Simulated scan of single mutants.
Amino acid sequence: MQHLTPQDPTPDSLGFRMPPEWAPHAATWMSWPADDDLWFGQLAPVRAEYAELVRTVARYERVDLLVRDEESERDARARLGLGAQDAELNVRLHRVPLDDVWVRDNGPIFVQGEAQELALTNWKFNAWGGKFEWQHDDLVPEHVASTLQMTHWDLPVVLEGGAVEVNGDGVALVTRSCLLTPTRNPHLNEERYAELLQRYLGVQRLLWLDGGLENDHTDGHIDTITRFTDARTIVTSVEADPSDPNHAVMNANLHALRGMTDRHGQPFRVVELPLPALRLEGPEGRLPPTYANFYIGNGFVAVPQYGDPNDQQALDILAPLFPDRDVIGLQSRAIITGGGSFHCMTQQQPEGTPWTGLKEDHA
């Protein structure tokens, strides 16, 4: 296992790219909820919903589940029905110090070579600009790399996985409200981000939307509002109520997307996805529920549901976009109190064999 730095050849120069989420997975990495204070006293119902998500993913692919202490491991085993042999239910447990559950953001971003060699990129994580504790979570990519004995690039730049959405054909979507906040990388502008994402994730065309959902503590991650479902199709959140603060932002995003083109100059197919109809409130104000925070796995798509009038409509819109996958609605009403949902809680490990790293004359 090699540690590579910005002084070494970049993933892009070696033919590595971040694959799209719908590419085949070897596993899904997740982190078990553990801190009742972070969940405003709702840890038990959060764990119940989370366990159903783990069980669903494990029916289709292996789950590598991080647990931070003995209590978390005991609770996970009990809720999932795991015995001494984790593999019986396609779940492997790993004891790792953790601050929170949002492994999409603090976990590694995998890159894949032309012959399906696999490496990972380890970006800095600072809890969305220092909003929460992050010191343990920032070390998760190193734990994953060590477990997999996988070569990785260590990068001195803050980047969360939920902030970047790729289409598998060289295009990525991001938001200005997130990436350009001064609490992440104040020295970076749009041009510098485009260069970094090209060099380390293989992004050839970076497309920018302005903003995300009201009261989203990530400052507007792309994965809460707008997603690729294939290389040419984008689903984007819309809010029908003109009096809702999300209406103007989502409408501006929709207008911008309709004017964007792919790497080949072709317009995207843009599909509107309603936000939940009901306004959900938490201890810190409005919550940011969204159906766009779905997770695409091997043969399935897990879509958050909130007991909302728009739940079924969201499933009906998404199902035709994934004709070869089971589109499954799962409850996320308790989970959303933490500010995110299924995509935020998962990180895919693409299929591939660990890359052995650079030869000594290049290391």
Rank of each mutant, 00 (worst) to 15 (best):
M1Y: 09
L4D: 04
T5F: 15
P6I: 02
G15H: 04
F16Q: 06
F16W: 02
P19D: 02
P19V: 01
A27P: 09
T28K: 00
W29Y: 15
W32K: 06
D35Y: 06
D37T: 07
L38M: 02
P45M: 04
V46N: 05
E52K: 04
V54L: 03
V57M: 03
R62L: 05
D64M: 10
R68T: 14
E70K: 07
S72T: 06
D75H: 10
A76N: 08
A84H: 11
A84M: 10
N90D: 13
H94R: 15
L98Y: 01
D100W: 00
W102M: 00
V103G: 02
N106L: 01
G113I: 05
G113S: 09
E114N: 07
E117R: 08
L118N: 01
L120E: 07
T121S: 07
W123R: 12
A127P: 07
G130H: 11
K131S: 11
E133H: 08
W134C: 08
D138I: 14
L139K: 15
E142F: 10
E142C: 09
E142G: 12
S146N: 13
T147K: 11
M150Y: 15
D154H: 14
L155S: 08
G162E: 01
V166A: 08
A172N: 10
S177E: 15
T181K: 15
P182E: 13
R184Y: 11
E191G: 13
E191L: 15
A194C: 06
Y200R: 12
L201D: 05
G202Y: 04
R205V: 06
L207N: 11
W208Q: 13
N215H: 12
D223L: 06
F228S: 10
A231T: 14
R232W: 08
I234M: 10
V235I: 15
S237A: 15
E239M: 14
N246Y: 08
H247A: 13
A248M: 07
A252H: 09
N253K: 05
L254V: 07
L254N: 09
A256D: 07
A256R: 15
A256P: 04
L257A: 12
G259M: 12
D262S: 13
R263N: 12
F268C: 09
R269E: 14
R269V: 12
L278T: 14
E281G: 06
R286K: 10
R286H: 05
L287S: 09
Y291D: 03
A292P: 05
V301G: 07
L315C: 05
D324I: 02
R325N: 05
D326R: 12
G329Q: 03
Q331W: 00
S332F: 03
S332W: 02
S332M: 08
I336Y: 02
G340K: 01
F342C: 01
P350G: 12
G352S: 05
G352Y: 08
T353F: 03
P354Q: 02
W355A: 11
T356I: 02
